[in-house]
Design a protein around this nucleic acid. Structure first.
Lengths: 203, 203, 203, 203
DNA sequence: GATGAATGAGTGTTCATTCAT
DNA sequence: TATGAATGAACACTCATTCAT
């Protein structure tokens, strides 16, 4: 009696908006990107966006949730298989090292700003908290695995080490935001890898 | 005839505005603090602020420059004297560890946001760049000093190490923004110190 | 080929929409009820409503016309029979008195708002005018009947008296809108009846 | 050190906005008058209005409160003096009768709509309630005075009678909204006066 | 210098209506 | 006939900046 448009279609659209929003937020920041910016980027009307999201903040929040999901699928597919804890950790670092600085900036300037904003906006805190928890847990598990296998020092506090890992990554990206040279960023990431392993590796 | 208003008076006022602005920017973020917020905090009129600064962005920029000056006087007075490179570095880390989380948040959430915003706003890039350069140089000099004295590994790239130092500090604070427990933050800072020294210390 | 959808079906649907609209308009007012409100109440799509009505205003207008028809059938069936003019008039008052305040509010807050809005909107003026004319005529006829029978003063201007009747009823309901106590409203309606009869009854 | 603009100036402006708002609300209704309408009418910027009022609803509410004050000064100055209860009541009715229909419409279509809207909007209920209470009390006192002096029936319930008075006035105006002939409205008001006195006057 | 009223461009959001399916 | 995604013109409200006093 009525086609209504498939669920797939709607979901695709939702994702397209999220994608456009990520682009805009990364480019101009949350407060400075307008709904009009997003709709222009999509060649879509402003009103349409509100069919899929209830507010600008809703887009922001769902974007973060989306990124979380993405991270889960991404990592679980790559890490689930085999490898030692050391290899896993090295792979993780290299996932960041191997991206171009531009790609990374888009992704992470959104990420970093979300951390900042969510610390002031109660409605976003929970999402951020969950994200951090998840990420921390992920690295913590690898470290614990390495402690068990003897690759990593047994006196390592895996929770602290995991936090240091992500802090280092985020801090490095934050400092790279003002940098345009890929090489410099790469050098820093290699430094990070070295620093990390001197911290936790046995011997 | 002597000027009614002394230069000292004007400078005092300028600093008072800067101080209020820091408080507000830290509290609500750059975009969300209004000139009215700042003037209310100061019990001063909106118009007055525009006597001392040409725009909101001008306040923001001068605030960062101000913080830079402050850092120079602060550190040079404490580090100039004696001590080995290791001691200097440890002192530096502890300057952050010993502050309460609240004080740190006020100071550094401004700092972190400035990094983010300045990466997108050309007019702010230069001042950010200068700030980072200065901070990097400061730690780099200590590390080089330690390399000369044999405290630190001779194969250390002092520039990278210095960058890692600040990245770690900034990343850690960024991650602490969502945390309310002082103890957890302290534990991480101690972890950072350990990590740092395992990275650069000889033996 | 016979039409898939019978005329009855269409009319039923039209009435269902009108009914839902009455409910919504009474609840939230004309401007504040959205087409979506009406379609949600009906569990029907927004688009469907536009098959039966050309616009929101069209619904509003037809609703008033509908209420007029309803009033005609309602009253002619109850009053046509017998009774004296006094009895008729008393019955009419009691038809309002005997309803619960809630029922009355639903019906009459629509009615009152329509009077207000139609006075400003030319396209609605005619239907309102017709409605008032009809209602006035109805009471006027009863009063004239009473004048002839000697129940009512012969110096009564039946047109004015009829207008006063409806004005009193509407004013009383308007004042009751802010009231939640049934009893108070009832007391007022009894007062109205008394006032009316002292005005027109002989002796 | 700074003139700031006098309190009188600000109050004058506030009243000018209120006056313009009354005009617009009466003309197009609450929902259909935009802040732009009001600012255009005043040849003033939209933003300025928000210096004096926090929201459109705030204007609406203050307008009603303002009208209440106005009514108090108006009536107390005219009624305080002497006259019997009957004379007072007749004067009151004539205050409405003697206005041109156009003036009355402006004033009362605002008033009537406020009653309607406030019955659905909790934030406005209190103001409306106070207004009605005050108006009721005012007439009630006159009627009680008349009862004491023997002008009015001792079996009159002054509260009900007062409510009937205002209901009649409001209902009559509501019905007059669709009328353009002054004479007809006047005739109705004379009818109202007659009706009222036959209801409460002794003999 | 100090004030704060005034401005107006710009923000997120809503909603009656249309139309492809 | 029925659907609901799409549209875009409005809307209430905000805020950096200006300027008369």
């Amino acid at each position: 009696m009525a086609p209504k448009v498939t669920v797939e279609y709607k979901d695709e659209k939702r994702l397209a908006i999220l994608d456009a929003a990520l682009h805009c937020f990364a480019d101009k920041g949350y407060r400075d990107t307008t709904i009009t910016d997003i709709s222009n980027y999509l060649l879509m009307s402003k009103g349409s966006i509100y069919i899929y999201f209830t507010s600008k903040e809703d887009i922001y929040k769902q974007l973060m949730e989306n990124r979380m999901e993405w991270m889960i699928t991404q990592t679980s597919s790559k890490f689930g298989e085999l490898t030692t804890a050391s290899e896993k950790l090295r792979l993780l670092v290299r996932m960041f090292t191997d991206q171009t600085l531009d790609d990374l900036k888009e992704l992470l300037s959104f990420h970093l700003e979300f951390m900042l904003i969510s610390s002031r906006q109660n409605s976003l805190k929970k999402v951020m908290h969950k994200h951090i928890e998840m990420a921390t847990k992920f690295v913590q598990d690898i470290i614990d695995e390495g402690k068990d296998s003897g690759e990593f020092r047994s006196d390592t506090d895996s929770y602290t080490a995991s936090t240091l890992f992500w802090a280092l990554r985020d801090g490095l990206v934050l400092h790279s935001l003002g940098i345009d040279v890929d090489e410099e960023y790469k050098a820093h990431m290699i430094g990070m890898e070295e620093m990390l392993f001197r911290y936790i590796a046995t011997l």
